[in-house]
Each structure stands twice: as structure tokens, then as C-alpha cells.
Design a protein around this nucleic acid. Structure first.
Lengths: 162, 162
DNA sequence: CTCATATATTTAACACGTTAATGAAATTGA
DNA sequence: TCAATTTCATTAACGTGTTAAATATATGAG
């Protein structure tokens, strides 16, 4: 349940903003705004993914395998934006469930190559249409143009340091 | 470190996007774009917070207490955008470290009232200037105007369902 | 070739996210 | 009044995020 109590609203937003010691208003903070937005978006997808008994991250991994074919763990971490230790656990879980296969790279014994399994393809086939529908509904309601603009602005923010 | 052996480049990214079965490109996905952007922003703050031995969430909690004074747990969950079970743990940890105090509401025995402790105020005083500096550096580099626009767009996305 | 260094993955330890269930206190309504 | 319901906080269980350290393999300098 994402709703919180609407009972106790704002007190007096004026006793801050004058005091240089205090941090600025939480509502206009980029980290929290990004968190809120992301949560609002994921709230649309999560129940559907839960019905298919996969997590958001598991979905990202098998989806990327469906897109890109054979991928090693580093490349997966990069594409799915998942840290290596998390990815190790996710791979283990997906392999145990038979959604992916895993084998060492013959040319570089350190690398782990991942591939989607038939069972994984079945999940892709089941989830993809629903996922698409949810995304398109969202795009329509927010505005297709605005989604593009937002994606560009987010990308620019994400690459400020490069 | 995103580069791999150029030997086994499997498929072109173009053979999808025409196949309605497959999900659309990960790079233009709102959930991941929001995640990336958030991570990029937090990367600026996290090392500083770590030097002061507090987590991002702990910082949000004490910062809100410094802003708003006495706050009950539900209100805190709402403002800091932290789910109740996480908040329970964070409160326990902050109280053990002496950064906040906690007591039951006399008028409603279910509620827990939180207040910042002197030790917490010391952390606020230490961290706030650094946090501000980082945020302002970020704002300057991204553009003050653009940050405002982005915050508005994110807020709209977050409140699509209300 | 060999040793030092670098890279890819895993493990460990702890904090947070998420959902469901529980316990306790307040509220409702018959 | 009191039983049913609702609300607030906590606990439980599991998955992920984060940092540091460990392990195994590859690479490069001498």
C-alpha cells in the first residue's frame, strides 16, 4: 500500500528557508523527487510482475537476454544497471528456476556467459505484452513528447560526470 | 570497463523494435532512466554521508526532524518516502546512536513521536553545509532552470495517479 | 617464464525495499 | 456498551543495494 495518512498536512513551511543551517525543503530535492517518480512508475508494473512471480530486476535480466542474446555478467550489470553482487544472486536464482543458463567463457575463464532458456522465453512471451500495455498507457497519460523530453533530461543528469 | 572482447558481438540492436514480442530498448525505459539518474545524483552525496557515518535514509530522517520538529512515524514515512518497516529499523538505529529520541503519543497510544536529539543536531550542523555545497554544484552544472523544470516534470509523473 | 598487477566474479556483512502477517490501540456502529 | 473494523507500528521473510574483501583467471613488464 503506497498511500500514507493524509491527516497531518504541512505545518509552517516558512520557518525554514531562512535558516542557512538547515537543508532545503525535501519536496524540491532531486534525490527524493527521482525516488518518488520511480516508485510511482514501478507501482504500475510491480503487481503484474508479481503475478508472474518475478521481481523487477529479474525481469530486467531476462528481458536483456531476450534482446541481446548471449551476454556476460559484466555486460549485464552494465545494461541492467545492477551491481555485481546483486547480479550474482539474481543469476543464481534465475538459473535455479530454469529461466536462464550460465556457463564459463571458453576464451576467458573469469567470465560468465548468460543465455535465456526456453522457460525464460515463455516468461518473456507472457510478460512482454502486459508490460508494453502498461508502458503505453503511462506514455499516453503523461504525454509521449514529454516522456521523450524527460528521458533526455534524465540521461543528461545521469551522464553529467562522464 | 564497459568494453568487452570485440570478438563475439552477437546481434545488432536493430533486429528488435520490429518484433512486437520483445520489450522496447532498455536505454529508453523510464524506470531504468530514473534509476540511473538517481544513482548519478546520489554518487555525489554518498561518499560525504559515509564519511559522517550515516546512510542516505538516516540523513533524510534527521533532516526532516530538524526541519519540522516533532513528527510521528507515519508523517515521517510520508515525508521521507520510506516504508514503515524500513522506518522502524532506521528509527531503532538512530535512537541507539543517540541522534533522535522516541516516545509514545499521549493522545494516541498507537503513534510514535520522533524528535531530534542534540547529538543529531550536531550531525545536521556538520553535514548540512557539505550537502548544500554538493547540491549547489550539481544545480549549477545541470542548470538551475533545468533542475526546476525537471522537478516539476518528476512531480507530475509521481502524481499521475492521484 | 615469472612475478606483479589488473580484471571478472563471488562472498560477506549490513542496511534498505517489499509484501504479508501480527499486535495493540482507536473508531465505528448497532 | 461492545463487537467488528480500521489504523499505526512492528515483526517476519525474502530480495536487492552497497561496500569491502576474497578468489580465480588473465595480462604485462622484465
Amino acid at each position: 500500500m503506497s498511500d500514507r495518512t493524509p491527516m497531518s498536512r504541512e505545518k509552517k513551511p516558512d520557518d525554514l528557508g531562512h535558516d542557512a543551517l538547515l537543508p532545503h525543503n525535501t519536496r524540491r530535492s532531486l534525490p527524493i523527487a527521482l525516488l518518488r517518480a520511480r516508485e510511482a512508475v514501478m507501482a504500475h508494473f510491480r503487481p503484474m510482475l508479481a503475478r508472474h512471480d518475478i521481481t523487477e530486476q529479474q525481469w530486467r535480466v531476462i528481458r536483456i537476454l531476450a534482446e541481446a542474446g548471449r551476454v556476460d555478467a559484466s555486460e549485464m550489470a552494465d545494461k541492467a544497471f545492477i551491481l555485481a553482487p546483486s547480479l550474482t544472486r539474481i543469476i543464481r536464482s534465475l538459473e535455479e528456476r530454469g529461466l536462464i543458463t550460465k556457463h564459463k567463457d571458453a576464451d576467458d575463464g573469469r567470465r560468465v556467459l548468460l543465455e535465456i532458456a526456453p522457460e525464460g522465453m515463455r516468461v518473456i512471451a507472457d510478460v512482454s505484452p502486459e508490460s508494453r500495455a502498461i508502458y503505453e498507457e503511462l506514455e499516453t497519460r503523461y504525454g509521449r513528447e514529454r516522456v521523450e523530453v524527460l528521458l533526455d533530461m534524465l540521461d543528461e543528469l545521469a551522464t553529467l560526470n562522464d
